[in-house]
């Protein structure tokens, strides 16, 4: 099937390495959304190395490429920092996690899965429905939170200022001694300055109560080069600390996160692989490279 096309196909037989091999290799990387520039650079590097080591077998090329990709990701630290901070009196505060991203990437779904993941670890999770813009976003989040075993803090009225909902969620989390408070935010395109400022405000307001432990930027694996612009904008306006790459269960490989990670310096932490409540995993560089290369 075309959709599942990867390097696996081209390494099938034991053809000698020729010009076509290199072209196909580059094509496969481009198809994985690594970007033309990065793909050309990777293949050129691989080619130099292969000549130096006199590689004759395509299978060796495959493992070399996997290694090269894993190498690119070697500095990626997927650790989630959810240690509970303490206030001035030494009282434990919840670890606050903001979830941000453009429209339709799967923020709400990710929160449901993440809540489930955390509650299975025995954590007490609170979810703040600060997406007060999109129709029925609060209901959707509540359904997911219920599945994930978390309590929801809803806005008091429709269209309430998202920062105030976030504040209430964290305040409630402190009261209830929650371990983690997850804040859902409305999707926003990174070019909308006013909406990006709103994120900075949410962060500012929340930090009056407790420091923000993580700002998870949700990126859709089907995205192309625009994902890099998204990472940079959400880094600048919301201080994103980790990437969640969703929809990896489809035909898209999400290779743009390599550039996004490199250029914005945000580590990739989690991946979403389906609509089931347990379809959220920690990011694994080797598995990711294997999926890209085959």
């Amino acid at each position: 099937m075309m959709a599942k096309w990867s390097l696996r196909g081209i390494f099938g037989g034991s053809r000698p390495i020729d010009e076509q091999t290199w072209e196909q290799l580059e094509d496969a990387l481009i198809l994985g959304d690594l970007g033309a520039e990065a793909s050309e650079r990777l293949v050129a590097g691989l080619r130099a190395q292969a000549e130096r080591l006199q590689v004759r077998d395509e299978r060796d090329l495959r493992s070399m490429l996997r290694d090269a990709l894993a190498e690119e990701l070697s500095e990626n630290d997927p650790t989630l920092h959810l240690r509970r901070p303490a206030d001035a009196e030494g009282r434990a505060l919840p670890a606050v996690v903001l979830v941000v991203g453009v429209n339709g990437v799967g923020k709400t779904t990710t929160i449901g899965k993440f809540a489930r993941f955390l509650s299975r670890l025995g954590k007490r999770v609170m979810v703040g429905a600060a997406d007060t813009f999109r129709a029925a976003a609060v209901e959707q989040l509540a359904t997911w939170a219920e599945r994930g075993g978390a309590e929801v803090v809803r806005p008091e009225r429709a269209g309430q200022d998202p920062a105030s909902v976030a504040y209430q969620a964290v305040a409630h989390g402190i009261e209830e001694n929650a371990d983690v408070v997850l804040i859902d935010t409305a999707g926003r395109l990174q070019t909308k300055a006013g909406l990006m400022d709103e994120l900075s405000k949410i962060r500012r307001v929340v930090e009056k109560l407790a420091p923000v432990a993580e700002v998870l930027l949700v990126l859709d694996a089907t995205t192309g080069r625009n994902g890099i612009a998204q990472a940079e904008a959400f880094l600048n306006h919301a201080g994103a600390t980790g990437i969640v790459l969703t929809k990896l269960d489809g035909s898209a490989k999400g290779g743009f996160v390599l550039s996004a990670r490199e250029e914005a310096g945000i580590p990739i932490k989690l991946i979403g692989v389906g609509e089931g409540i347990d379809d959220l995993h920690a990011f694994n560089a080797e598995a990711f490279a294997r999926d890209l290369v085959g």
Partner: peptide
Amino acid sequence: DAMTGQDAAAT
């Protein structure tokens, strides 16, 4: 989605 990358063709 106008932001879709290479996957647009396959999808």
